[in-house]
Amino acid sequence: MSKHGSFQITQKLFLRDGDKFLIMRDSKSGYGDLPGGRMNEDEFFEDWMKSIHREVKEELGESVRVEINPKPIFVHKHRVNEGNYPCIIIAYQAKFLGGEIVISDEHDFMEWVSVKNYDPSPLFTEYMLDAVKVYLKEYA
């Protein structure tokens, strides 16, 4: 008999500024990433938007303002680079409203790229690559 799995939840943003979206690079793995991150245990029974807004502040800085559509655009599987944990990505569409982006030490690179012609394959790998491809196919 199989047992129930235990999985982490990661919320990621496709943060748009017009026809561009923000990509980042994880400083530990060197792989592509998106703003957002794993939900803490004490956040699970709260409003999940609090968790993603916390991550945005941590990763993009206190002054950044975003408008997140709370309806997920898709759900995808993922493996957290650190520790290889199985994880569920919940992807949201978000709008950049302003503020100065100051990336944390979790990331060492960021760039606004065009949804029309961005090729994610040099930077993104595995499930994150699949997720970005899904997004570009559906929302470019």
Rank of each mutant, 00 (worst) to 15 (best):
I90H: 01
D33P: 01
P120M: 02
F74I: 03
D108M: 05
K57W: 13
R79C: 07
C87K: 01
K20D: 14
Y31L: 13
V113R: 00
M39D: 00
E100K: 13
K12V: 11
H107W: 09
K50P: 07
Q11G: 08
F21S: 00
Y118G: 06
Y85N: 10
G18H: 11
R54H: 04
V56A: 14
V64E: 08
S29E: 02
L13N: 02
G83I: 06
H78V: 07
G18Q: 11
Y85L: 10
E58H: 10
Q93K: 13
S104V: 01
D33S: 14
M110W: 09
D47A: 11
E62C: 03
L22R: 08
N117L: 06
G18A: 07
I73Q: 06
F96V: 12
D47K: 14
F14Q: 09
E82G: 05
E46K: 08
E67C: 11
F21I: 00
K95E: 15
G83V: 11
S121K: 12
L22V: 07
N117W: 05
Y85A: 13
G99Y: 01
F109P: 14
I90R: 08
S114H: 10
P35Q: 04
N40A: 12
E100C: 01
I101E: 01
H76R: 07
L34S: 08
D17T: 02
D47Q: 11
G36Q: 03
R16P: 01
